[in-house]
Design a protein around this nucleic acid. Structure first.
Lengths: 210, 210, 210, 210
DNA sequence: TATGAATGAGTATTCATTCAT
DNA sequence: TATGAATGAATACTCATTCAT
């Protein structure tokens, strides 16, 4: 649907779009191989079978390309979350579905996790995507979490509590994914997903007990 | 104590140590000013009043210097956690103290958080610190969390559960800190610490209810 | 009249000429905005509402376009000089008119001065306009000065002296314009035109005194 | 004496200075060969037998190198003018000496003329040397002309007139040199120097006649 | 006549690192 | 122990130009 439309230049011809596509694919491949920092324009161009200069016909800058890749990643996440929620029955299931779909998406696509964390890099200093793009992507990411909040409200939480629960779920998912992805901390046989489920069920308990 | 020993080359002369010290201090200052990515060896050398080449007498590489700074950061964290735990009374307080001291340390020292996350950067790929250094730092970081596990056990958790609880606390703290630090997600008036406290109290409830 | 003919390719269709015209206009606008060095083909094309590639149907190269713009500039100068001379009465007035019209044209149109100096750039080395174009433009520029020589002859100077006077007037005008245009040398309240008038009157004095 | 001191970094060792020297020499050579615009850092480095990066040890930037070369050129001009004036007897000779030495310097060293004109390039827009450097060089160039003004005053001109005469001499010299250097205008057997002498003698006549 | 796409050479500058002294 | 000097590889990006369509 709306995937990747951000930053498109003209997009009138299908041929053009196919090439954009191939560049974005190449970019993802390089990000995966070299890490986000190590992914230079020349490397991406080489991967795509182009000259660096050629990329500038399709993207205004390196950061525009980054933004496109990131945007698509978030769009795919949104789709995954929406799909899971749509398939869920009760409000409690909505909650589970939204939170776990978010988690599962990143657990299953670790390179998307890297991309997502890219947004967070460098402390609070802006890091090159540009104010507007940054905000757009941030908003898109936040939109991804809305189903969690909605489910919480459907389960009786007032708006403030629903926000808190959503934020907490996001934080927990991020933390667990970070640990799991980097294998920095031994998990002692516990699976990352079990950790996430534990958090979700605890929240549900609390909501239902009221 | 022996905190600075990681990566030390000879360490025979006090004078040498003082210089190492001044370089590490300079490095931290530059990290603070320019961020981790923006901190070049030349900048650190200049800050320390040296030539870039001079640093190589004290550190094998840029990454060795990073590792030293990181090591000290973790040592300071350890100290903070130990101090808080020592001052706590009941086992429940031990648990609170350990988890919140960890959180508070990073909340109060965002640059140390950047340093900590540096370890995690780049997914699972080796990222420059080197296998050995990496393991040493990882172990040091894990040691920092031991008081949480110990408190959980003192509260009746079996070893496996204690590990899980410790991991979960670590994950939650990491996630909340990430959000708070990067201000990427609006917190809607909820303070990050409240989020962390909520997690801690939930775990305590569960432990005490048994 | 035939001013635009230099470097024309086919010139069969009026439509084509109108487009050439619009490109030349765009080029002047960009020169004005960005300076001669900063004016890229792409910028000119964009200003004209074309693709860079499209310009190559109208001009063989960037330098050909430069040459066209320059040619028109010199044609406009010629017109200005001719007009001024035609309106002058006595031979002395002819002399004044020719020299000052030359000066005034460039004083009033600093961008044309930049264009004129472009011809002179880079010492004696060939600099991109190509031998033929270069010669044509040079001759056109020289033709612009003929009225000065003619007036000098009308005032009694022999051909050699008339040439010298013409050359000297050109040199003086160029020098004063250079100073005035670049504001590199403080003029201490003296107006550039006063400097030029001083030169002209001195020459006239000398001619009339004979 | 003071040649080239502008922009020096440390200059404690003779060896360093010799290398600076060789780079400046290489830069001059490249300027001569390729023109000022075509002179890239890499070209200069190659000419000097260095890697581009090596130049940055000796000069902060390309523009700093440009400025150094330009500064030396002006310093040499100053020396030439001072020497000529010192050797002159009467005030009238001072005037002749100052004006003609200026002219002769550039007539004899056309590449210095190119360098000098570089300062004037690009209309009034700043062109990269930076405000301070620009001003310093400009002042140095102006100082070069002071002997002309002083001689005019010694011959009875009031300060304002002396300034005007100095400016006029500069303008005339610039114009004639421009013509002669670029051979853009046929000189019809008249030598450029004759043109300059004519100007000088005219001014002297006027001054002495008072 | 015009375009979208692509190229290849070019730009200044930064970086961690090495080495003779 | 420290320095001055140098390197080679890398960076994102711009340019005039070409060519198939």
């Amino acid at each position: 649907m709306s995937e990747g439309a951000v930053g498109r230049k003209r997009g009138r011809y299908a041929a053009t779009d196919a090439k954009r596509e191939s560049i974005v694919t190449a970019a993802r491949a390089v990000f995966e191989r070299e890490g986000l920092d190590g992914a230079s324009l020349r490397a991406i161009a080489a991967e795509a079978g182009y000259t660096p200069a050629a990329l500038y016909f399709h993207f205004d800058s390196k950061e525009a390309l980054y933004a496109e890749v990131l945007g698509r990643s978030i769009a795919a996440l949104q789709e995954a979350v929406d799909g899971a929620v749509a398939a869920a029955g009760t409000p409690a299931d909505h909650f589970r579905a939204a939170a776990l779909a978010f988690f599962d998406f990143y657990a299953a696509n670790p390179r998307d996790l890297d991309l997502g964390f890219y947004l967070f890099r460098g402390g609070m200093r802006p890091h090159g995507l540009g104010r507007e793009r940054d905000k757009a992507l941030n908003d898109a990411l936040e939109a991804t979490l809305a189903p969690i909040r909605n489910a919480a409200q459907a389960l009786g939480a007032d708006p403030a509590l629903a926000d808190l629960i959503m934020t907490d779920a996001f934080a927990h998912a991020s933390g667990v994914l970070l640990l799991a992805h980097t294998q920095r901390i031994r998990m002692f046989g516990t699976s990352p997903r079990a950790l996430m489920e534990r958090h979700v069920e605890t929240e549900l308990d609390r909501l239902l007990r009221r």
